[in-house]
């Protein structure tokens, strides 16, 4: 297997060809914020938090979908990147109704963590307070669209790992929302196997288990990476 060597924030990394910059950064112990990427499902480069600078390339590149190349020199924490990341997180907070104090995921939320990571102490952008609705029709789960950041992890995990494709994205732009079935209430979608993978995949409190309290909110995100390796390499233990 071919191996590529590169430099991320002055740390030398050797990693197999075909790996992404995000994987290489993880290998090097360099933290890069991300929201839409998750181990075990495909990467789509949508949240733009993992953008990095690569010397010799005048565009910012999403680390989650950029393959490593020999001799790459990567910077993950330039002032420009830090400023853009913070703006990205502010835009996400201003877009939905992310009221941490009343959210089941408070203290267990990737969006909250990313806000801390990028140093966001307030949003410079006007909060939009959209009225997006809540669907509680499923017997075990609920989805609060107000807390959704449209990362589409639920869409991908349901399609790629569970194979049910209950979720998709409807509409466009600011009107986008996660849609279940053929725009039916979640509880009426017969394709849903109630496996709960979307609950585990959701980075915020948008998809939740009914009756679960903030203290009980736990997720098993490693499950997806495990399932994906298990299926590809037949390693069924973890």
């Amino acid at each position: 297997m071919a191996v590529k060597t590169l430099k991320i924030d002055d740390i030398d990394v050797a990693i197999e060809a075909g790996a992404t910059l995000l994987q290489a950064a993880q290998e090097a112990g360099v933290p890069i914020p991300k929201l839409c990427a998750m181990k075990g499902i495909s990467s789509i480069g949508a949240c733009r938090l993992c953008l990095v600078e690569v010397e010799g390339i005048n565009k910012l590149l999403p680390a989650c979908v950029t393959e490593v190349a020999e001799g790459m020199v990567v910077h993950t924490q330039t002032p420009k990147l830090q400023e853009y990341r913070r703006m990205t997180v502010e835009l996400i907070f201003a877009e939905g109704n992310h009221v941490c104090s009343i959210c089941v995921a408070n203290g267990n939320c990737e969006l909250q963590d990313v806000a801390i990571e990028v140093g966001m102490d307030h949003s410079r952008f006007t909060y939009r307070f959209p009225d997006r609705g809540v669907d509680l029709s499923h017997p075990s789960f609920g989805i609060d669209h107000n807390r959704c950041i449209l990362c589409t992890r639920c869409v991908r995990v349901c399609d790629e790992v569970e194979g049910a494709h209950v979720w998709d994205v409807a509409n466009r732009g600011a009107a986008c929302y996660i849609v279940s079935g053929l725009n039916q209430p979640w509880g009426e979608v017969s394709a849903c196997t109630s496996c709960g993978k979307c609950v585990d995949a959701c980075p915020t409190g948008a998809i939740f288990r009914k009756g679960e309290t903030t203290g009980e909110k736990q997720r098993d995100r490693d499950k997806f990476a495990f399932l994906s390796t298990a299926r590809e390499k037949r390693e069924w233990t973890r």
Partner: peptide, 21 residues
């Protein structure tokens, strides 16, 4: 642009709304 952004990536989906505002 605000009406035509597909909504996939954050800066375009929500940045255009804020710019318009």
């Amino acid at each position: 642009c605000r009406g035509e952004t597909c909504g996939k990536c954050v800066p375009c989906r929500t940045g255009t709304v804020q710019l318009y505002a």
